Computed example of a mutant assay.
Amino acid sequence: MSVLVRHRGPARPRTRLVCFPHAGAPPGFFTAWGAGLPAHTEVLTARYPGSPAEGAALGDVAALAAAALDALAPRPTHLFGHSMGALVAYETARRLRRPPARLYVSACDAPPVGRAPVDVSGDDALLGELRRIGGTDPGLLGDEAALAALLPRIRHHFDLLNGYAFSSGPPLTCPVTAFHAHQDTEATADAVGRWREVTAAGFDLRGFPGDHFYLVAQRDQLLAEIGTRLDAPAADWQLAP
């Protein structure tokens, strides 16, 4: 399994953005993001395991992602995670040999808040959860053949999330930018704002119109927010020749 998928790689990138998707996200969810970011930005997505054999805990996924990033040419690396992806991005940042330039977390309560597990043990329960939170193509939810192939992978992603427990430790040394949506019932502004507790560097909070999947309708505005931060000075990084 390839841990990182490269969507765009300029010949001489100056910065790198690594995207960590929500549970059950399609592989190409972030493919189009490169067009909305500065041309010198390399864009990658972390690919999650599809079964316990490939990664049984969220920390395992983060360790794989960190090892894959540590093996790349050094350059200022920004991590963006949406929903469950915010937790994976955060745990990846904690494991990197060199701190990221910035961590962006989206539509996710801060780790110290915690969350109640979601019952996805049966197909009906899992489909009900997907319908409740939105963000999944209704046509897919009615395609029995596609669901038979996809539901085991999606269930494993929810199992990773259900099994996650925050453990305190040294704060991050990179700044954190948190995004939330005004009508999001899954992650409130107050709970998202508590991401400030996990970093010893700067923190800012930005709100958008919309629900838990605001980043679809508000993609251009979100990418503009990220793009303005990609060129901020990043300590302890040396660009590869």
Rank of each mutant, 00 (worst) to 15 (best):
R75N: 09
L72S: 06
P21I: 03
R219S: 06
E197Y: 03
A146E: 10
D204N: 13
P175Y: 08
V198A: 07
P49N: 08
R194T: 04
G139P: 02
Y48Q: 02
N162F: 01
D220V: 09
S106F: 05
G50P: 00
R97E: 12
A46K: 06
D60K: 03
G169Q: 03
A107T: 07
F20K: 00
A234H: 07
G128K: 10
V43K: 01
R16A: 05
A68K: 11
E197M: 14
G207H: 10
L69W: 07
F20V: 00
F158T: 03
P152M: 12
H22E: 02
G139Q: 11
L172M: 08
P21W: 04
G207I: 06
E225F: 02
L127C: 04
G28L: 05
T41P: 08
V216P: 00
R194L: 11
A35K: 14
P171H: 14
R8N: 03
R47N: 00
L37P: 05
G163H: 04
L79I: 11
A224P: 07
A232F: 06
V61E: 01
V61L: 04
Q221N: 13
E197T: 10
F166I: 09
R115E: 06
L140Q: 10
R6Q: 04
G50E: 14
R194A: 12
S51N: 04
R153N: 02
S106E: 03
R206G: 04
R47C: 00
P100D: 09
L58K: 05
S2N: 12
H212Q: 10
V18I: 11
D159L: 02
L172T: 01
V105C: 11
A187P: 06
G193L: 10
P26N: 07
R196N: 10
L37V: 09
P76R: 03
E42W: 09
P209Y: 13
D123C: 09
A217T: 14
A149F: 15
A235I: 01
V3A: 00
D220L: 13
E129M: 09
R131V: 07
V3W: 07
L150D: 01
P152R: 14
Q238C: 05
Y214V: 10
T173A: 15
G134E: 12
A93L: 10
A235Q: 13
Y104K: 00
Y164W: 14
L79N: 01
G227Q: 07
Y214K: 06
G134N: 13
A110F: 04
H212K: 13
P170S: 15
L103K: 12
P21M: 06
A25M: 06
Y164M: 05
E42F: 08
E197D: 15
L239V: 08
V105Q: 03
G59W: 00
A181D: 03
V61D: 04
R196M: 08
Y48N: 08
L222D: 02
T77G: 01
A189E: 15
G55C: 00
R98Q: 15
D109E: 14
A191V: 03
T185Y: 10
N162Y: 07
A165K: 06
W237E: 07
T136N: 09
F30G: 01
V3H: 00
G36I: 04
L17A: 07
S106K: 07
V61I: 11
R14S: 13
D190C: 05
R131Q: 15
F208V: 10
A178F: 11
D137L: 14
F166T: 02
P26T: 03
D184H: 12
G202D: 13
